Computed example of a mutant assay.
Amino acid sequence: MSNSKQILVVDDDKTIRELLSEYLSKVGFSVISAEDGIEMEKQLALHQPDLIVLDIMMPGDDGFVLCQRVRQNSNVPIIMLTANSDEVDRVLGLEIGADDYMAKPFSPRELLARIKALLRRSAFHKAAIDSVKPRFMKFAQWKLDALQQTLLNDNGESLSLTGADFQLLMLFLENPNEAISRDKICQTLHGRDAFSNERAIDVHLSRLRQNLGDDAKNPQIIKTVRGAGYVFIAEIQRLTE
């Protein structure tokens, strides 16, 4: 694979690191790895990976802490690995900015499929962002910079969006006053059947609403339409700067 994408695997289990390094390398990816948060920071100082596979349960800073740290200055796609069958870990991972999750033990083939899907959507949305004209959109108290994936409110405060949050917001902005179904949201964010991702959709919508300061009980931006989906009801202005 020319111009191969680089994957950073962060897991304290050496067997998993070696397994994924060998498996992903065979299908054309460039793979770097880290056994903990300290090594991860060193790798990120040297490289700019296209995607991170991040274990939750590790000594020192766990995956939740590391995910939040990455999200402070990067929108790189993150897939979290959890050995806990409890849904809480998965939901929390999505709430703090992860794009997807997988439970251990996992199939390397399924992980590969999810990696490819995330990278495809990332590339697609980057191309879409680059072609967005105008670059800026104003709604409610927010001004969106589509190129930088940031929101600026009327008080001058800036909010950087994760890849999933930005994709969801753009879905609404590109389809104002139209009901967006949960299936459509799931396909946009995960590219998989919606049945197994009901809770994930709720988390993504809740996080976006929270970021926008929109009250689901008295919505001014995103309204829930029972049986139909969600409608972006705020007026949108497309700006040149």
Rank of each mutant, 00 (worst) to 15 (best):
N153F: 00
I52F: 07
D11T: 09
I7K: 04
P49R: 04
R207Q: 15
L173P: 00
I16K: 03
E235Y: 03
D61Y: 12
I38D: 08
D183N: 15
I56Y: 10
L208F: 02
V203S: 15
I38M: 08
R71W: 01
L112C: 08
P134G: 12
M102E: 14
N153T: 00
R114I: 01
G156N: 03
N211Q: 12
Q149D: 02
K14Q: 13
K126W: 08
F195G: 05
L94C: 06
K133M: 12
H190A: 07
K217Q: 14
Y230I: 05
L66N: 03
D13H: 11
N155M: 10
E87M: 14
L171V: 00
F139Q: 00
R199N: 11
K143Q: 14
A117C: 11
I236M: 05
D202M: 09
H204K: 13
F64Y: 09
A127Y: 01
D165T: 07
E157F: 03
N211Y: 10
S30N: 13
D214Q: 03
P77A: 00
L20I: 08
L112P: 05
S160H: 09
D183V: 14
M137L: 10
D183F: 09
G63N: 04
V203Y: 07
R109V: 14
P219D: 02
S196M: 09
G163I: 08
D50M: 02
N197V: 08
D215I: 08
L152I: 11
D130R: 13
Q43A: 15
K5I: 10
D154R: 14
E241H: 13
I16S: 10
D50E: 07
P49E: 07
A117L: 14
K42H: 08
K42P: 02
T150R: 12
D89E: 07
E241C: 12
N218V: 11
L51M: 07
G37R: 03
E18C: 10
R182I: 14
S30C: 04
F124P: 05
L118R: 11
Q187A: 14
F195H: 12
A234W: 03
V76Q: 08
A179F: 09
A216H: 11
G191T: 02
L168G: 03
L171D: 00
T82K: 00
R238E: 11
D202K: 11
D214I: 02
I129G: 10
L112T: 13
W142N: 08
V203H: 09
